[in-house]
């Protein structure tokens, strides 16, 4: 059945994989002093965890975005609307504001990661399960509540920053910009375990994604326990985004870019391909982008700025080319 298209998409996946490898190798080896083993070892030691972090982030955000778009049944949305970014910003601002930038929570990376994950996990569970029931299983209203909470967190956060000591504020600002630096191996391992855990728990629901895109009535007709399935997937998406955000900081629009690139590139409804494709595109964007940021802009501009501006333009392009969203 339609074997031609499937084979073509396999080839496309291989091409993407090759590009990811190319970016990764380029990232690892560019500007490395091979003649000096010590410097080489040092460069590897610095770059390896960063590369791994980027790959994990791309996987989490890419997969979550495709799933999110499919359960909302709209390709113009991105999970950054769920408010995890602004919650992250609020948590970090509140920590610095109430405990000071020298406090254990602010300095100890593991502790701050744990606080992020736990708080975001609680909020995600409460809001996106409870409100989902409360809104009679209407995903769009959950999303609207998410945006309300975003500005709710935002108004508290901006109030705090306005009355904050400027020095404290400067130290805070660095943690509010997404960065792949200084992430220790414990956090990497822990994130990986969490993400794999989410995928394993949701494996049944993930297999239903293709059917879900037929719409609610068709999905129910084909025997899907629709509301439960959507609720669990929504929770999974939020947790994935929470883990990724806790790890590297807020990156908006990345999900929108890579999910849509994957959809345009593969032109299929098969989520096995879409999810993998989205993750691979994410890896290319992040690793390639970081390569450019480090070697061309020499760190002067954080990568999240490129992603926000690029993603914003891409969003406008999507709006312009679409008749119906």
């Amino acid at each position: 059945m339609n074997t031609l298209a499937i084979r073509a998409n396999r080839r496309k996946l291989l091409i993407l994989l090759a590009l990811v490898l190319l970016c990764a190798i380029g990232y690892m080896l560019l500007d490395v002093n091979f003649s000096n083993p010590k410097l080489l070892a040092y460069a590897m030691k610095i770059r390896t965890p960063k590369l791994i972090v980027m790959l994990i982030t791309a996987f989490a955000i890419g997969g979550a975005s495709i799933v999110f778009q499919s359960i909302i049944n709209n390709t113009i949305v991105t999970p950054c609307l769920l408010g995890m970014n602004s919650l992250y910003t609020l948590i970090h601002t509140a920590v610095v504001f109430f405990l000071g930038s020298a406090s254990v929570v602010a300095i100890n990376a593991n502790l701050s990661f744990a606080v992020d994950v736990v708080l975001m996990g609680i909020v995600a569970t409460v809001i996106y399960s409870w409100i989902f029931k409360k809104t009679k299983h209407n995903v769009l209203y959950v999303l609207l509540v998410g945006t309300v909470l975003t500005s709710f967190f935002g108004s508290i956060q901006t109030t705090l920053t306005r009355v904050m000591d400027p020095n404290e504020y400067d130290s805070l600002l660095n943690t509010l910009v997404a960065s792949f630096n200084n992430i220790n191996s414990e956090i990497i391992l822990f994130s990986l375990v969490l993400l794999i855990g989410i995928v394993v728990v949701l494996r049944k629901e993930l297999a239903l994604l293709d059917v879900l895109t037929l719409g609610k009535h068709q999905a129910i007709n084909l025997g899907v326990d629709y509301d439960r399935c959507i609720r669990r997937l929504l929770l999974g998406v939020t947790l994935c985004i929470a883990v990724a955000t806790a790890m590297v900081g807020p990156i908006s629009f990345l999900g929108l870019i890579i999910a849509n690139l994957s959809r345009q590139f593969f032109k299929t409804f098969r989520h096995s391909q879409l999810v993998v494709g989205s993750a691979l595109f994410g890896m290319i964007v992040l690793v390639g982008g970081q390569l450019i940021v480090e070697h061309i802009y020499t760190y002067s501009v954080p990568i999240s700025v490129f992603i926000t501006v690029g993603g914003g333009l891409y969003f406008l392009y999507l709006l312009l080319t679409r008749k119906k969203v």
Binding site: V77, L140, L144, T147, S252, V305, T308, G312, K323
Partner: peptide, 28 residues
């Protein structure tokens, strides 16, 4: 105006994302 929305809730969502784009540039 150019786009047909499947659900009216999409309009504010698009608006918020639109605002995020502008806010992103401002923040940068």
């Amino acid at each position: 105006q150019r786009i047909q929305f499947k659900d009216m809730v999409m309009v504010p969502l698009v608006g918020i994302m639109f605002g995020n784009v502008i806010g992103g540039v401002t923040n940068y």
